[in-house]
Amino acid sequence: MKKILITGGAGFVGSHLCERLAQDNECEVYSLDNYFTGNESNHVSNVKYIKGSTKDISSLVDFSPDIVFHLGEYSRVEQSFDDIEKVLEFNKIGTYAVLEFVRKHKCKLLYAGSSTKFGDSGENANASPYAWSKSTNTTLVKNYAEWFGIDYAITYFYNVYGPREIQSGKYATLIALFKEKMRNNEELTVVSPGTQVRNFTHVDDTIDALLLIGKYGHGDEYGIGSPECYTILEVAKMFGGKIKMLSERKGNRMLAEVIDDKTRGLGWKPKRRLEDFINECKIDNWEI
C-alpha cells in the first residue's frame, strides 16, 4: 500500500484530495490538520485523521509516507496583515518542519505554492505577509532539493472554487461568500476598484492536476489555473445581486499570469467553467 500524507486534509482543497485518493484501493491516506480553517464536517471515508500542527509533524506522524501533499498553510491575503503570527507559525515554522520531515523520510514533497507570486508581473511577491511567506517558501523548497536531494514538485493554485469552500466569516473565499450573500438576500461586497482580474479554477480540475503532478511532476512551475479570467465586478454581475463597493485594501493584486505549460504537458486541462457553476447554484437556490 502506498502511504500518502496530506497536510490540511480537512480543509477545502485538502478534503477533496483526500476523497479522491481514498477511492484508490492501493493508497493508504492520512490527513494532518490543525483545524484552523479545516472542519470535521469535511472528513471523508477511508482516511486516517491526525489532529495537530505541521510544526509538530515529526512527533505526530510515526510512519514514512511515499509522498507528502503539503497544503496545510495559512492562505488569505488581506487577513494576513492582522494574522502575521499565524502566517509565521503555519507557513514558516510549519513548512520548515515539513521539509525536515521529508528530508528524514526521503519521501516526495508536493508543495502548494501561491499564484500571488506572479501577481502584477512579480511585483506582488512581497505585497502581504501571506504572499511573502509563500513566495519565499518556494525558494526554500528548491534550496532543500539542491542542498539535500529531496524530490519535489511545486504547484500554484488560481482562485479555487467549489463545494466545501468557507462560506462566512473573515476567511470566506469569494465565490462561497457571494453564494452566502445571495442566499441571505444581502449585497455583494466588492473591494475597489473591482477591476482586479482572477482566473477561477474549479476544485475538481485542481484535484485532477494535483494527482498528475504528484505522480509525474518534478520541479517548479506547475500552475493549475483556468484560462478564463474575470474581474471581481464581472463575477458579482454573474450572480445578479446588488453590489456594494468597499474601499481598497493592501496586498490586493490586479493581475496574475497563469503559468501552466508544465501541468498541461502532463495531459491536464480544465474542464469546468465558473459561469456554469454559478448557474447551477442559482438552480439549487445557492446550496452547492
Rank of each mutant, 00 (worst) to 15 (best):
G11Q: 05
Y171Q: 11
T189A: 12
V258W: 08
H70M: 04
F178Q: 02
F277Q: 05
S226H: 10
C229G: 04
G214P: 02
L212A: 01
S41I: 11
L211P: 01
K106E: 07
G38F: 05
E248Q: 13
K282F: 07
I6N: 03
P65D: 12
E78H: 14
A176Y: 03
V68P: 03
S45P: 01
Y156E: 04
T201A: 14
N137K: 14
V13M: 12
R198F: 01
Q23G: 13
G94L: 11
S128V: 13
E180Q: 15
Y222V: 03
G9M: 08
H218A: 06
E28D: 14
M1L: 14
F239Y: 06
N124Q: 14
K108A: 04
N285R: 10
A176Q: 01
N279M: 12
G162D: 12
E257C: 10
F178G: 02
I232F: 10
N25I: 13
T136E: 10
G225R: 05
T54R: 03
V190T: 00
K55P: 00
A131M: 08
S31D: 02
T195H: 07
E234H: 04
Q79E: 15
L274A: 08
T263R: 02
Q167V: 10
G267L: 05
S64R: 13
I4Q: 00
P227S: 13
M254A: 14
T195W: 06
L88M: 12
R198T: 01
L71Y: 08
K237F: 00
N285T: 09
D208H: 07
Y130S: 04
K48G: 00
T138Y: 01
K108D: 00
N279D: 13
K215N: 04
N199E: 06
K106N: 09
K237Y: 00
S45D: 08
S115Y: 04
N91G: 09
A112E: 06
S15H: 04
I93N: 09
V98F: 08
I288P: 01
T231F: 05
I278V: 13
K170F: 13
E280I: 11
L174I: 15
S15F: 02
L266R: 05
K104R: 13
G9C: 06
F69D: 02
Y35A: 11
G194Q: 05
T136Q: 11
I278Y: 07
D24E: 15
V102Y: 01
F101Q: 02
N39Y: 10
